[in-house]
Design a protein around this nucleic acid. Sequence first.
DNA 1: GTCTATAAAGCGATAGAC
DNA 2: GTCTATCGCTTTATAGAC
Lengths: 218, 218
Amino acid sequence: MKDRKTVILEAAARVIACRGVRGLRVEEVAAEARVSKALVYYHFKDRAGLLRRTLRFVGDRAERYTRGGGPGDAAPRGPGPGDLAPGARVPGDPLRELERRLLLEFQDLPEVRENSTAWGELRASAVFEPELREELARAGREWVREIADLLGPVGPAVPDAALVSAAERLTVLVEGLSTRWLVGLLPAGHAAELLRGAVAAEAEGLRRAAVRTACPAA
Amino acid sequence: MKDRKTVILEAAARVIACRGVRGLRVEEVAAEARVSKALVYYHFKDRAGLLRRTLRFVGDRAERYTRGGGPGDAAPRGPGPGDLAPGARVPGDPLRELERRLLLEFQDLPEVRENSTAWGELRASAVFEPELREELARAGREWVREIADLLGPVGPAVPDAALVSAAERLTVLVEGLSTRWLVGLLPAGHAAELLRGAVAAEAEGLRRAAVRTACPAA
DNA sequence: GTCTATAAAGCGATAGAC
DNA sequence: GTCTATCGCTTTATAGAC
């Protein structure tokens, strides 16, 4: 049972996806949600409030499709092999699992495009609006932590700092590729290929680091 | 002898650096340049014209500090070893030269910040404004080509496609790191460290690719 | 909670004098 | 080329009825 407030948030997400944060007009959101302008102000106080809540709303959705899981999710049906038992972590190559996870950002689904666009806008806007930075930083840390954990199994005894550095590079790269993909400068297939190359390069680097840690003499 | 037109362009670059492309107000540019609003319209026709010319102006400046060169330049005094004879290409390790080149984007100079900010805005805006894409694509291709050429010397007989892929990843990474740096989420030192790690990982990957090309049996 | 109507402000753009 | 003054549209935000 969707209340009007949620309807407005979904509408705002769609508007941001095609006009950008700074192109968002309260009136257009109201029209998209089929409510009056005044109702938007009633629920969200002002334009800035609407923006804040929409960004959080979008962030919550991203967690849903990102960690495959709960019922009712938009099934993250990656480009990989066939389906998996629900909830089962992919057993095979941990690198493949990591790739699959990162490639979710390039699914051509409306929800994914909306989320990627909104996050791109958030990043870009944060350069000029300091109050957006904390949320951005928090989301970034979680995202890096998740990827670092997925990187762990590539080899035994890799120092955590190295995992985090590699994860930081990979997440930054995914963000950049995502922007280019959204702009239309980079087909999803090419983005995927570049990403796989980076994953391979980072994994190789980590294995070498592990060797140096294990036997510093080498 | 700066004419008013140039003064206005410089003012516009500063305004973009602290308000963003989409936060730019013609009136603020006029005030920053200490001229009347009408004069801005006289020289640039309308807001869009001002934006176009400012972006080109900023792009030209970037080439100046990026390829070290002509007289009167802001000397690109990197964090590396001491000065070099003017015009001399660094002779030593080609990887160091590449790193130096990429690290120029993190110099804490007003001009560099302004340029990075403006390009970040251009990228972000292009998601919603298709007419910006061509210039973005052209600049991107040149930048990738330059980095690919710098990557060439890491090993003999590396296929060009591999160089281009690595260069694409590195440029995307630099853009992403630059954004985080501008936002204040990432100190320049940490950005430099991550970048060095990526350069090392990519170089190692290229060397392995070269080996596979040379003796496919391996 | 939701609407219609309207106030108030912001901002791009132009007219016309010098 | 440069200024002052102003027009007119767009957009945010509020008042007040239901």
